[in-house]
């Protein structure tokens, strides 16, 4: 059996030092995704692993008037223990639907966002909510929009050789929040996906419309979102049918997923938003 070298960095500086020496080191917080997806008795790990779950800087939560900021190693239980009012809708409900309590006691928000094999449950919500993440690397610190953790191939894109250290979620609640989870297993399968749509209704107009469908790949079209935003909720049915058809066509052309569940959810969303 190949053994790995395990490190226990005490702070972010030490983590960055480890990354400097080996950009491929595995940074493990909860580790539920890595461990739970391996059926073998022995867990396969890369040559070097850093256990970062106990690094205090990565577990802090700060609430300001504009945003809620959480260290990447905040566990789901830690998030749920915050006052419900400090959690933007529907984050609390979504986190509660992930796994079971024992799993949520160790799974972290950073681990959920850093999955390289597929988008996990939180990404589409945080992407719609314009959340930002901080990446730290030996060459510096940068903030990126959660939506940008998606490459041109529509798969997760986590900058190599860097540490996702913090997440910032703006305090902003949407009037219209719609989501459906496809697939119901504890661990995602090839067919699991999340459909999320958020919007505001301002003076009978749909504003800030955003729609994400993600699983192994992600689908989001900003130009289509813009063409929906600003429309009156009583826009003629014919026009809405045209919008839905365009959305469906773009989705089919991208050949990311089976388009049937997407089409059904899309129709449901538009049926609810436009009277």
């Amino acid at each position: 059996m190949k053994l790995s070298e395990v490190f226990y960095p005490q702070d972010v500086e030490e983590i960055l030092g480890l990354i400097r020496k080996n950009p491929d080191i595995l940074l493990m917080a909860g580790g539920t995704g890595i461990v739970g997806s391996q059926p073998s008795r022995t867990i396969q790990l890369p040559e070097q692993v850093a256990s970062i779950a106990k690094v205090q800087e990565l577990r802090k939560t700060i609430r300001t008037e504009q945003f809620l900021e959480m260290g990447a190693c905040t566990t789901f239980t830690g998030i749920l223990s915050l006052a419900p009012a400090s959690l933007p809708d529907p984050l609390g409900a979504v986190i509660k639907s992930i796994g079971n309590r024992a799993l949520r006691n160790i799974a972290t928000i950073g681990g959920n966002l850093c999955s390289r094999s597929r988008f996990l449950d939180l990404w589409p919500f945080l992407s719609c909510m314009d959340a930002q993440v901080e990446f730290r690397s030996p060459s510096g610190t940068r903030w990126a929009s959660v939506g940008h953790l998606c490459g041109e191939d529509n798969r997760p894109l986590i900058p190599p050789g860097s540490l996702l250290s913090r997440l910032r979620i703006p305090h902003y609640n949407y009037d219209f929040v719609y989501y459906r989870k496809l697939g119901n297993s504890l661990y995602p399968t090839a067919d699991s996906a999340m459909f999320v749509c958020m919007a505001n209704i301002v003076r009978d107009k749909v504003e800030d419309f955003r729609l994400v469908f993600s699983g192994e790949k992600a689908f989001r079209l900003k130009d289509k979102e813009m063409s929906v935003s600003g429309r009156k909720t009583n826009t003629p049915k014919r026009e809405i049918r045209g919008l839905v058809a365009e959305y469906k066509k773009s989705f089919e052309e991208m050949e990311l997923f089976d388009s049937r569940p997407f089409a059904a959810l899309l129709e449901d969303v538009f049926g609810r938003l436009f009277l």
Partner: peptide, 14 residues
């Protein structure tokens, strides 16, 4: 906290 010890690498218990 209650956890599934099958999901935790032993080294994390240090």
């Amino acid at each position: 906290r209650i956890v599934h010890s099958c999901l935790i690498p032993a080294f994390k218990a240090r």
